[in-house]
């Protein structure tokens, strides 16, 4: 007997998946505050997610700083505003590029790895094995990973901004007479606490999104190895999509606070 659908098969399954995701997020907050706490696993995940992302974040942040400075210079020279270059680069990197680059790289590297790892644990019954040995797999696997991404991605974002500014300084110092202190003062002349805090909050939201999406997709993976691939892939696609939406919303809120 086939089940009757409220709207259609696709629409019903879309709304059911949203409902499931809300329950999953609710369960995360409930389990996160209830003891026992898996501190050791959280630290291990912070190391895996944060420390191991450093080379990629360093390279990308550094290149972004150089390229953005190189691309902006001709336009600013044309308007006679070359001296604004450090401020412009700082605003672009701190307000937008660093959080977004860190989040997108992490979605690709960390989100896919969480989705694949948990998906593989699901299809090989490792999650069931935890369950039957009376260990809460949600707390051990999901809470620890989501907390780790939420903690480490803001730190990676600040690091990315720093490395990006270093790249910008190297490019500026090649073309103009400047020193590190003068560049730094000029760069942060236009940066406010609100800019930094908005970016940190953005990174916290992005980190949470990457963690929760990867865990959700992996935790409910099925259909064997095909399911693992799908979990990894959809973790990246969905978290990137959500990151862009969140970016727009947070920018709007920050701008309205700034009075723009």
């Amino acid at each position: 007997m086939s089940r009757p659908y409220v709207i259609s098969k696709k629409a019903d399954s879309f709304f059911y998946s949203i409902y499931d995701a809300i329950l999953f997020i609710g369960r995360f907050f409930k389990e996160a505050v209830q003891p026992p706490y898996e501190f050791q696993e959280i630290v291990r995940q912070c190391y895996e997610i944060g420390y191991r992302s450093l080379p990629l974040i360093s390279l990308t942040g550094f290149i972004t700083g150089i390229v953005f400075t190189k691309q902006s210079r001709p336009s600013l020279i044309e308007f006679g505003a070359a001296s604004w270059l450090p401020s412009l680069v700082a605003i672009a990197i701190v307000r937008a590029l660093a959080p977004l680059i860190t989040a997108l790289i992490s979605a690709g590297r960390v989100g896919s790895s969480i989705g694949a790892e948990l998906g593989s644990m699901r299809v090989t019954e490792q999650i069931d094995a935890m369950e039957v040995s009376a260990v809460n797999p949600f707390k051990f696997l999901v809470v620890s990973r989501v907390l780790a991404t939420t903690i480490t991605i803001p730190i990676l974002m600040l690091y990315c901004a720093l490395v990006g500014m270093l790249g910008a300084f190297l490019n500026v110092s090649q073309n103009e007479e400047t020193n590190f202190v003068a560049f730094w003062e000029s760069a942060f002349d236009q940066i406010t606490f609100l800019d930094v805090w908005a970016s940190v909050i953005k990174a916290i939201v992005f980190g949470f999104t990457i963690g929760i999406v990867g865990c959700y997709k992996g935790y409910y993976a099925n259909k064997g190895t095909e399911g693992v691939g799908k979990a990894a892939n959809s973790s990246v696609v969905l978290s990137m999509f959500l990151i862009f939406i969140e970016e727009v919303i947070i920018v709007q809120i920050a701008n309205s606070i700034r009075g723009y």
Binding site: E117, M121, T124, E125, Q126, D128, A129, M130, V132, S133
Partner: peptide, 11 residues
Amino acid sequence: FSFQNSALYDS
């Protein structure tokens, strides 16, 4: 519970 594929934690 002993699983068919052992379900050892491979990490």
